[in-house]
């Protein structure tokens, strides 16, 4: 296990697209362990992508099981060659990035995803995910295309004003 160096803006390599993984060997799995160790060493990161440490292969890790308020999640996920096969809905949320220190901004993401990927041994995985977990995966998959959340930040002035009916003593009920 080893901590890997995280590339930070304005490093041009963060704009590079990554290639599919074709060989599922011990070297791959060892790299994934290092990638996870690197994620955990950062400031509360819920995901990390291989290109963030300079390895331009389509590998992401997502784990949103440890948020302040629990959100629907699949626990620790390693997704190799991930593909979004279906997406629905959108909402705004605040994001930051290990590769963009000391900056956060609002980004619009799909709220519901269906995802196909492979595990570190090449086995096919399929997930349905929503909300924060879906956001995390989209953020990480952007890295595989050389995209950063700062490329998608929207002005707070153009906030989507979600109409909510405020019910006394109950949770607010949202409607799009």
């Amino acid at each position: 296990m080893a901590l890997l160096e995280i590339l930070k803006v304005p490093d041009e390599r963060l704009k590079q697209a990554s290639d599919p993984v074709e060989v599922f060997d011990d070297a791959l799995r060892s790299f994934i362990d290092d990638l996870e160790e690197t994620r955990l060493a950062g400031p509360g990161a819920v995901g990390i992508a291989a290109p963030q440490v300079g390895r331009f292969q389509r590998i992401v890790i997502v784990d949103v099981s440890n948020t302040r308020k629990p959100v629907p999640n699949h626990g620790y996920m390693v997704l190799v060659n991930p593909e979004i096969t279906h997406w629905e809905g959108y909402e705004m949320g605040r994001e930051g990035c290990l590769s963009v220190p000391d900056y956060t901004g609002n980004v619009i993401r799909a709220t519901h995803l269906e995802v196909k990927a492979q595990d570190p041994r090449g086995k096919i995985l399929e997930f349905k995910m929503e909300g924060f977990e879906a956001r995390a995966l989209q953020h990480e998959m952007d890295h595989l295309e050389g995209m950063l959340f700062v490329d998608r930040v929207v002005s707070r002035r153009t906030d989507l004003f979600r109409r909510k009916v405020y019910l006394k003593g109950r949770k607010a009920i949202g409607s799009a």
């Binding site: 997502v62 308020k69 605040r94 995390a136």
Partner: peptide, 18 residues
């Protein structure tokens, strides 16, 4: 919740670091 005539919606911001 006592501000009657105006809609006030409170929501948590969970900042995603990835």
């Amino acid at each position: 919740s006592t501000l009657g005539d105006i809609d006030v919606a409170v929501s948590p911001i969970e900042t995603l670091i990835g």
